[in-house]
Amino acid sequence: MSLSGAYGPTDDAESLRVLHAYLDAGGTLLDTGDFYGAGHNEMLIGRALRERSREDAVLSVKFGATIAPTGMPLGFDGRPEHVATSLAYSLRRLDVDHLDVYRPARLDPEVPIEETIGAVQEQVEAGYVRHIGLSEVGAETIRRAAAVAPISDLQIEYSLLTRGIEANGILETCRELGIGITAYGVLAKGMVAGRSGGAREAFPRFQGENLAHNQALLDQLRDLAEAKGASMAQLAIAWVAAQGEDIVPLVGARRMDQVTSMLGSTAVHLDAEDLTRIDEALPVGAARGDRYPTVFMDQLDSER
């Protein structure tokens, strides 16, 4: 998403270098959404993959979010007929004949999840999709979806400051059903790296006393990161990766140095003592402020 203007202007030539650097280093997972830059992100990835083997990348695509010409979100469309249309456009923009994972970006409150997932399963049977994923849905919805078709993974926010899935039954349900977790927001929307201001000011966790409190929580771990020879960002990624082999940290990068940092996190080892210390410093529920503005929190089935 960051390669398509989500956090400011980007340069396609540099973005392509970033994508190739990641893939050349052995990275495989490329996560996108058909609404990222109104299709720009898919076309960018398509350009990168045109020079490589299709099998170099695991393509995970979200669909269903609707946007206005201004880029502002309008809602979500999970109707079965919309699934097929969205998929057709994604395949064309990415210039591939199949997607590895296809998932609704959010739950459409007007459409039963069974209907949406059933429509994706039809595309699996037709060979256009390999696996079905979910995004930001709660335990009950996960069970309903899994009763219709096999679910590969749930994409949901999970980080040092966002550990709700440990308390609300989502992680437990996924593990019971054999569903993996693709964890996004592992850098707490940049707070781990000390970034604030700009568009982030709309997020409650970046406002006033909430920001000071949350930064103080993270500051407790800076000497641990230093002892590990790692940056705070690398420590945060390594912590998510250490939570289980069924959890994959999803990290956004739009600069070469960010790719280098992301790859370097794989060398950061956290032992049982380290994990206990982190749990004591940042227990579940320690962060202050919602993770999204109220209007977006209301759209999250995972928060109900």
Rank of each mutant, 00 (worst) to 15 (best):
A188V: 05
A193L: 03
Y184S: 03
S196M: 00
G178T: 11
F203I: 12
K189R: 15
A167T: 15
N168I: 09
R163F: 06
T182C: 10
F203C: 01
R200Q: 06
R163M: 08
G185T: 10
P204H: 03
E176I: 10
L161D: 06
A167F: 08
G197V: 05
L217C: 09
M191T: 02
G197T: 07
E209T: 13
G164F: 06
R195M: 09
R200T: 06
G169Y: 01
R163N: 14
A183L: 08
T173Q: 11
A199K: 09
G180S: 13
A216K: 08
V192E: 00
A216M: 05
F206W: 02
L161K: 03
A202C: 05
L187C: 00
S159M: 07
I181K: 07
A199I: 13
Y158V: 09
R205V: 01
G208T: 03
A167S: 15
E166I: 14
V186P: 11
H213M: 07
A183D: 14
L177N: 14
Y184M: 02
A167Q: 15
G194P: 14
G169W: 00
C174D: 13
I165F: 04
M191K: 01
G190E: 09
R200S: 08
E157G: 05
G180T: 12
R200K: 09
F206D: 06
L171D: 12
S196V: 00
N210P: 09
I170S: 04
I165A: 10
N168V: 11
A167E: 15
I156G: 10
N214F: 01
E209S: 14
A193F: 01
L160P: 03
I170N: 04
E201Y: 03
A216T: 08
C174T: 14
F203L: 09
N214C: 08
M191L: 15
E172I: 04
I179P: 13
N168E: 11
F206H: 05
V186W: 10
T182Q: 14
G197I: 02
L171H: 12
L160D: 00
L160M: 11
K189G: 01
A212P: 08
Y184R: 06
T162Y: 03
E166G: 15
P204M: 01
G169T: 06
R163K: 15
T162A: 11
G190D: 08
A212V: 15
L211S: 05
A202L: 11
G208H: 09
G194C: 07
I170W: 02
Q215T: 10
K189A: 12
G169E: 12
T173H: 10
I165V: 14
G169I: 04
I179Y: 05
H213E: 06
A183I: 11
F206N: 08
G190T: 03
L171A: 15
L171V: 06
R200P: 09
